[in-house]
């Protein structure tokens, strides 16, 4: 197990306190409390509709809580005004399954999108884009391509480079590798672990694949019906499942192997 505490004395970058959220009449998070530790990869797993995506969107303010509070970098997200929310989002790397690369911008301009919003100088932005491409294992020639000229795996890598462009201390990843083939997924997982080892950002990683959750997470959070079913290191989830639901989840991977 890796060092969970991160830098000594650093406060948890994300704190959920008794958060309740609903989508229409349907409750999706129910008195949800959680502290994410600095520098850890927390993988979040559960069935569709268990509230995992909502929990992630509460962190960057794309969703709102009915009650309770979400604190990120010491700021209560629900209390932030539009400008402060924009500033917060620029400190958080965001990667989603559909990637959401901007189709009308080249790879270069996609990667430096946030830097361009901040009006970074051109040559500096190009250097940054090049070094980020290297970081995610892509050729410099791709810089002037458009997203539709890339493969699925390349798009995910560009999405990751874009999220890393402003050296965020926190990455939110919502099933980032859910739509690529098995080999590509394994490559992307290795890439992510390598980047995490070097840069040590905190990563809130959502997945529906228990194998991925156990392989990547320093801790694994199993969610069910808007509540925490179990939270612990991968070995604990595997060896001491807290409920039949968790056992069912981990059983699937044993059958696969």
């Amino acid at each position: 197990m890796k060092n969970l505490a991160g830098a000594a004395g650093e406060p948890p970058p994300i704190i959920f306190r008794e958060v309740t959220a609903a989508y229409g009449a349907e409750p999706v998070l129910d008195s949800f409390s959680l502290e994410v530790l600095p520098g850890e990869i927390l993988t979040v797993i559960g069935h569709s509709g268990c509230g995992k995506t909502t929990s992630l969107k509460l962190i960057n303010g794309l969703a709102r809580a009915q009650s309770g509070s979400v604190t990120v970098f010491g700021q209560e997200v629900g209390a932030l005004g539009p400008k402060q929310l924009i500033a917060l989002r620029r400190r958080i790397g965001y990667v989603i399954q559909g990637v959401g690369l901007f189709p009308h911008l080249t790879v270069w301009k996609n990667i430096t999108y946030v830097l361009d919003l901040l009006r970074e100088e051109r040559e500096q932005s190009r250097q940054k884009a090049l070094s980020l491409l290297g970081l995610v294992g892509l050729e410099p020639e791709l810089l002037r391509r458009f997203p539709r000229e890339l493969s699925g795996g390349q798009r995910q890598r560009v999405g990751l480079a874009r999220a890393l462009a402003f050296s965020p201390r926190l990455l939110l990843m919502d099933e980032p590798f859910g739509a690529v083939d098995g080999i590509t997924r394994a490559q992307l997982q290795r890439l992510l672990l390598g980047l995490h080892r070097d840069l040590r950002p905190t990563i809130y990683f959502i997945t529906h694949d228990i194998g991925e959750a156990l392989a990547l997470g320093d801790r694994v959070l199993v969610m069910r019906r808007g509540r925490i079913e179990q939270l612990g290191p991968p070995a604990e989830i595997r060896e001491r499942p807290a409920s039949d639901y968790v056992r069912q989840l981990t059983d699937t991977i044993i059958y696969k192997k």
């Binding site: 924009i86 989002r89 965001y94 989603i96 990637v99 189709p103 919003l117 999405g159 874009r162």
Partner: peptide
């Protein structure tokens, strides 16, 4: 594409 809009919002686009 909603993914594009979500990515833009999530990255703090005014």
């Amino acid at each position: 594409d909603p993914d594009v809009m979500e990515a833009a919002a999530g990255m703090g686009t005014p």
